[in-house]
Design a protein around this nucleic acid. Structure first.
Lengths: 206, 206, 206, 206
DNA sequence: GATGAATGAGAATTCATTCAT
DNA sequence: GATGAATGAATTCTCATTCAT
């Protein structure tokens, strides 16, 4: 698929990936300029279009690359942990570790999800859908639901938990954006997560 | 601010607002074409730039206009209802009524929130932030929290409720998008809301 | 169709038509540069694409324009002249008069016929076909074939005449190209035509 | 001239010639892609530009090669046949035999004649002109014109014959193009040629 | 006030040719 | 000798904004 690009030296590849992700993250698909990308990556215009047939191909490649990186999270989950809340706690820790390691990848992916451009929408959906389903499935695999109260709808409880975790994540991002990012305590979300998980144990479990 | 535009005849103003909102909703800020807008609105290019200095001004005006319409929701809330969950139920009903009355305004606002264009991001935030805070404040004004269990953090409970309601809303939108919009039962989210509120009463209230 | 262009001042229109025809004649469809055209015509890049949606549209417009000019020839034929050879003589005179008046149009049309670019081939055929058929029909309308010898195939005789006239035309053009065009005696082809027509009378007529 | 290329193994040379001719025939000079040529020929980009300095050189080489092949026709003409019409008949037969043997060469040559690209026009003319003159000369060498009627201009008669034969050829090509090429009767033009030659005997000979 | 033709910088993409390996 | 990645000028086309009428 992207064989010409894959054969490049590691450093060059990294430079192009970084430059492209940065530009797409900053401006979104449509506004991102291939001119700017080649300038940032320090390569010629012709080269970029040698590696990738066109702007869209480059964008889709980056998504696939970002998903590959994200898969790291999945591989580290301990599936012997059958308690949903404990597993979520665990995942959050892993996730944050990976985000710290590859922050630009996650900023990029966040931008991809928000991307509204008709030109790439369908392909983005096609590519991300599979990963989303696969992740979702793994997330709830081999869980023991017997701890939940008998008088509640467990599916609704799980969704409530899921949306709350999402909410914490988004709130953290907002805080990072509005304050200057440097002064942000990276461990604060974990402390908060713990508090919420304690709450959930109290209200959802027997 | 927009005095030239405000002095226009009502019909012309409406035509321009409709045409612009439609175009911005359809294509997003960057891709929206002023050519298309003037064509849809039946005015000349020069006129548009007489009323609004530039594309960005027009966009920001529309946001302010949409917020003005949205304020209607606030005015109808019954602040004598001090039960949080009952109030949320009530608000959801009002909200849906307004959405049905001005669907294009809400489609536009939804697009605004998703808008990623660096060129307008800051200004959009500035304008929407105020309304968001103001709404948030009113939402939780004059509430009686004594019904909540004493052994939980009420702030966290409220946030959980808030994020869950958001989650239901987003899920509905996703369903509308993936299925064909016509076959969607507009009252289904309300039924679901009721179920969740019942759940919340069971787990958060004494 | 080309309403924006049609509304332009005569001089501007002429300037654009000339510049475009020259460029297309010089380089052919593919190699003709819209950059060069706007430079020659003294207009901005944007303007050209305001008048014509794209390069192809401009090219097709020029063909239609050239055909319109060529139609002048048809209107002047005297259809009371029922002798084929006399009529051909007459047409050649008219044709040369028009060519002298609009030489660039005929150079352009000649290039169009030779044009091989896949991108426009079909459309060029569609547009020129109709005119070609229409011209051919008129050419042989209301003729008296009784003068032809009875022992020959009249259709083959006519084709021979037709191809010979074409041959004279092409030979003249070649001569103009190889010699410097100025020293070319514009009336020479007519003298030659007369000689050939005399020959044809001798060999094909009773 | 093309010594580097001439020293290559026969098979490689043939492969490059075939690939190049095909590409030039398909797309014309300008649009023909050296990338496509090296891909079709199974050689590297660098090699192509080692053998030929540039695209133009390659094109001109192919023309010279094609002319070399075409010369075969000349060698087979029977110059004892002094009757012009009989000789023309004979040449047509030889020509068709060679075309059937090397169809790609003739397709290529046909494309060369139609080629309008300014960049190669002059050189193409220079190269083909010589062969054209040489062929023309041979064609009319050692002929007996005594069979022609005394009351006509023999030169004009010959030109008429020449242009008519050209016309038949072009008409056949048109027919092949418009109908599907497969259903075309390859011997039909010969039948027609015979009819025309019979006509010419009747009208031009004593 | 209203008009809409004109602008031109900037977009994505192509491709013959070079040259270090 | 052979390779194929790298180059960058040139291509067509877009569109918010201006300004003379």
């Amino acid at each position: 698929m992207y064989s010409k690009f894959d054969n490049l030296a590691y450093e060059k590849r990294a430079s192009i990936i970084n430059a492209s992700m940065q530009e797409f993250t900053d401006k979104g698909y449509q506004l991102a300029s291939t001119n700017e990308i080649v300038k940032r990556a320090g390569i010629s215009k012709g080269s970029l279009f040698n590696y990738f047939n066109n702007k869209k191909d480059l964008y889709l490649f980056l998504i696939e690359y970002a998903i590959e990186v994200s898969r790291e999270i999945m591989t580290e989950i301990d599936f012997n942990q059958t308690d949903l809340l404990e597993r979520l706690k665990q995942i959050t820790v892993i996730k944050l570790r990976v985000i710290k390691k590859y922050p630009e990848v996650f900023n990029f992916l966040q931008g991809v999800i928000a991307e509204g451009s008709e030109e790439v929408k369908r392909d983005v959906e096609r590519i991300t859908m599979q990963f989303a389903q696969e992740s979702y499935q793994k997330l709830y695999e081999n869980l023991d639901y017997s701890k939940f109260r008998d008088d509640i709808d467990i599916q609704k409880a799980i969704k409530t938990i899921y949306w709350t975790i999402e909410g914490i994540g988004n709130e953290s991002k907002e805080k990072i954006k509005s304050n200057n990012a440097e002064s942000f305590d990276v461990d604060a979300p974990f402390k908060e997560m713990d508090d919420y998980i304690e709450l959930f144990q109290k209200i959802f479990y027997k």
